[in-house]
């Protein structure tokens, strides 16, 4: 797979291909697997993603510790805010839904990780619903997202323990922004700007889960990650460009991750996990977990 988004965009545009098509053909060559087989596997992932969205929206889930659950349904049935009735609110609900399923040890697709698994399905299935796009479009979007994620894995990191939350929900926001932009008609160049616009908004984001559990703030960070992806898509589709190339923004994310203190890398030693309330809740819940 590619090590640089600039190289991928250059090849796609030179050959008149979408990033999705380029990603599928490159994967097919790398793995000596037919494109059809790769599409089938992505189709299976899509099926699981849709299942997790549906399961989470019903709202009767509780996480292992009881810290999170039931909030996705509030965005479906709860009182209206300024975004009521828009795809934006629907996408926030979907992001919470998938992450609530994850916290309850349900079946999800790590994309790129389980902790950031809500962002991508929320953004692409929500946009597909709003725009009436088919599963084929969604499978293409997963291929584009995979290419972007592969570049992030090569240049920076996809692990909260290595790079903080910017490497999990931040990476997911970049993937969703690029994939979503292309899915609704943006060019490869616009998709690349969307990646940069999303990723710049998550630089420095720490990984600070209470008790080390993928629950709080992870569930909500998937919703805000989806919001950042949507903001990036909106700007990129309007023709806004980001002056620092996406590859360099990704490199910056890697650099910040390497410099980040270990307290902010999934160890529950700093950030929200280390607040007085964070410590108290974690202690109570971990005791409860042991009793089960």
């Amino acid at each position: 797979m590619y090590h640089s988004l600039a190289a991928a965009v250059r090849d796609a545009e030179a050959r008149g291909l979408s990033l999705a098509r380029l990603a599928l053909e490159t994967e097919s060559e790398d793995q000596a697997r037919p494109v059809g087989e790769i599409r089938d596997l992505l189709g299976r992932a899509l099926h699981v993603m849709k299942g997790a969205v549906a399961q989470g929206l019903t709202g009767d889930l509780k996480s292992s510790s009881g810290l999170v659950g039931g909030d996705a349904a509030k965005l479906v049935h709860g009182p209206a805010g300024p975004l009521a009735g828009t795809p934006f609110r629907d996408i926030l609900a979907r992001a919470l839904a998938v992450q609530e399923v994850n916290a309850a040890m349900g079946v999800i697709v790590a994309a790129p990780t389980a902790g950031g698994a809500g962002v991508l399905p929320a953004v692409i299935t929500g946009l597909a619903e709003a725009k009436g796009l088919s599963d084929d479009h969604l499978i293409d979007a997963l291929a584009t997202a995979g290419l972007i994620g592969a570049v992030i894995a090569e240049r920076a990191s996809l692990s909260g323990a290595e790079g903080g939350c910017q490497a999990e929900t931040g990476a997911a926001a970049g993937m969703a922004a690029g994939a979503g932009t292309e899915m609704i008609g943006g060019s490869p160049t616009q998709a690349m700007h969307a990646v940069a616009l999303a990723q710049q908004g998550t630089l420095g984001l720490v990984c600070d889960p209470l008790g080390g559990l993928v629950e709080l703030p992870c569930v909500f960070r998937n919703a805000t990650g989806a919001a950042i992806a949507l903001a990036a898509i909106e700007m990129a589709m309007a023709g806004i460009t980001f002056a620092i190339p996406a590859d360099e923004v990704i490199d910056t994310m890697g650099e910040i991750g390497r410099e980040m203190d270990v307290r902010y890398r999934e160890t529950a030693g700093g950030g929200l996990a280390a607040t007085p309330t964070g410590r108290r809740l974690a202690k109570e819940r971990l005791v409860q977990l042991k009793k089960r």
Partner: peptide, 21 residues
């Protein structure tokens, strides 16, 4: 070499790709 299917996957029981899957 990173594969697309490493990134969009695994399909897994939550909650953590590193700590569970």
């Amino acid at each position: 070499m990173v594969s697309l299917l490493d990134i969009i996957g695994p399909v897994m029981v939550g909650p953590s790709s590193s700590h569970t899957a």
